[in-house]
Simulated scan of single mutants.
Amino acid sequence: MERDLSLIAMFAALIAALGLIPQITLAFGVPITAQSLGVMLCGTVLGARRGGLAALLFVFLVALGLPLLSGGRGGLGVFASPTAGFVLGFPVAAFVTGWITRRLGRLPVGLAASLASVLGGIGVLYLCGITGLSLALGRSWADAALLVTAFLPGDVIKAVLAGMLTLTLYRARPRLVLSRA
């Protein structure tokens, strides 16, 4: 129990720390950040339940007003911005990424983690983010989807990186990759 709480808190802190990497804000108000890499790692390392809880803790802390999002943003106003769908999608994406990583248990760890990151950390996160963007901008879902295509190459790189980091951790400390336990 204590170990789980520590890992959940540590991975919520990882998502926050990745927000310190300078962001690039696109013309329609959604920044490119490294925080989605943290969401992917929550799932690939901690598994579905713990990974989802780590991302949920992060979202809760943002809602309380802590400036943990890239660019030092936080507070309830974030949930009325174009980024709301992405932020609210963090826990869902982490959960699905962990669930898929577990289901791909027959594949090598790095490959399973990369594929799970693409499906959960990109696919699910984009579904949530595009929906929020569509609502915030008053545009159709298809128009909003077209806007986020600029994120895709960077997010694929993050998914591959998540797979490599998960594999490296697994080789060094297999018992710490709970998605494989």
Rank of each mutant, 00 (worst) to 15 (best):
L119R: 02
R139C: 04
R106K: 14
V59D: 10
A144T: 08
L125Y: 06
G43K: 07
S117L: 07
A136P: 04
T44C: 07
V45G: 11
G52Y: 00
A93S: 14
V109F: 03
L64F: 14
L37R: 03
R50I: 07
R49S: 13
L135P: 02
C42S: 02
G47W: 00
R50N: 10
A112R: 08
A112F: 11
L57Y: 00
T97D: 02
A84F: 12
G123H: 04
S117I: 09
C128F: 10
W141T: 02
A80W: 10
G75I: 10
G105C: 13
A142W: 14
L88Q: 05
V87T: 13
P82V: 11
P67T: 14
C42Q: 01
V109Q: 01
S114G: 14
I100T: 11
L53S: 05
R102W: 14
R102V: 07
A112D: 10
G120W: 08
L115R: 02
G71R: 02
G51C: 11
G121T: 05
R106S: 14
L37W: 07
R103P: 01
S134Q: 01
V87G: 10
L137C: 13
G123P: 03
L69H: 10
G132Y: 03
V59S: 10
V118E: 02
F60R: 05
R73W: 11
I130V: 15
W99A: 15
F95N: 00
G74M: 02
L133N: 00
L127N: 00
L61S: 05
F58R: 07
G43F: 09
T83M: 08
L57P: 01
L111C: 06
A116T: 05
S140K: 09
V45P: 12
G85W: 06
G138E: 06
G38V: 05
T131K: 00
R102Y: 13
G47K: 04
R102A: 14
R139K: 15
V124K: 01
G89Q: 07
I122W: 12
P108M: 11
S81D: 04
